[in-house]
Amino acid sequence: MKSKMTMVETPNVYCLVSGAAEGNTRLNAFDNALLEAGVGDTNLMRMSSICPPGAKEVSRDEIELPGGGLIPLAYAHIDSQTPQMWIASAIAVGIPEDETQPGVIMEFEDHTRLEYVETIVKQMVVDAFEYRKRALKEIKFVGVEHQVTKCAATFAAAVLWYK
């Protein structure tokens, strides 16, 4: 009988966060958007787009992320230095009907309004489930848009964690 070995424990919860902010530089704008999203004092470990089987959605307030900790997440972000331009980032999580199967996280960003980005990212989830031949139960979504004043960034993420 084979035993299941993993390098790290599989996360069992996730939360959806977003932020938009201005800054003096593109990196400062990104950092400020992370702070607004509640993940600014962590080290982001960008993951590919799979939600662990059975993972439950929680609010950002329900998990304690350690300062400086390595935090696994899937995220979308975009920045711009073009005044009056709209920028938007979004995440959509597809929850399977069969909770023993993994879900799918899709991320999308563009120099446009959130409504367009939301449409695209949700369709990406639908497509991903079709490719996998899995039944889709529901789509969870978070997104943010911002009209640039000087230098701005948007950020949306699915934070994978433990409870």
Rank of each mutant, 00 (worst) to 15 (best):
V8P: 00
T10Y: 05
T10V: 15
N12V: 11
Y14R: 05
Y14L: 11
C15P: 00
C15E: 09
L16K: 02
V17D: 07
S18Y: 06
G19I: 06
E22D: 12
E22T: 07
G23N: 05
G23L: 04
N24S: 10
A29R: 02
A29E: 05
A29L: 04
F30D: 04
N32T: 06
A33P: 05
L34Q: 12
L34I: 02
L35V: 13
L35S: 10
E36R: 04
A37T: 10
G38Y: 08
V39H: 05
G40T: 10
D41F: 14
T42S: 08
T42E: 05
T42W: 03
M45V: 14
M45S: 08
M45D: 10
S48P: 01
C51Q: 12
P53D: 01
G54D: 10
A55K: 04
K56I: 15
K56W: 01
E57I: 14
V58S: 01
V58A: 11
I63G: 05
I63K: 01
L65G: 01
P66V: 04
G68A: 07
G69H: 07
L70A: 13
L70D: 11
I78P: 04
T82G: 00
Q84P: 00
M85A: 13
W86Q: 09
I87Y: 11
A88L: 09
S89Y: 10
I91M: 11
I91E: 08
I91N: 11
A92E: 02
E97T: 14
E97I: 10
E97A: 06
E99C: 01
P102H: 06
P102I: 06
M106K: 15
M106A: 15
M106S: 14
E109T: 11
E109S: 15
H111R: 05
L114V: 04
V117Q: 02
E118F: 02
I120M: 09
I120F: 00
Q123L: 06
V126F: 02
A128S: 15
F129N: 08
E130I: 06
K133H: 14
R134Q: 15
L136Y: 08
E138L: 01
F141G: 02
F141S: 01
G143F: 11
G143E: 09
H146C: 12
K150C: 00
A152F: 11
A158I: 03
V159E: 05
W161N: 09
W161E: 03
Y162W: 14
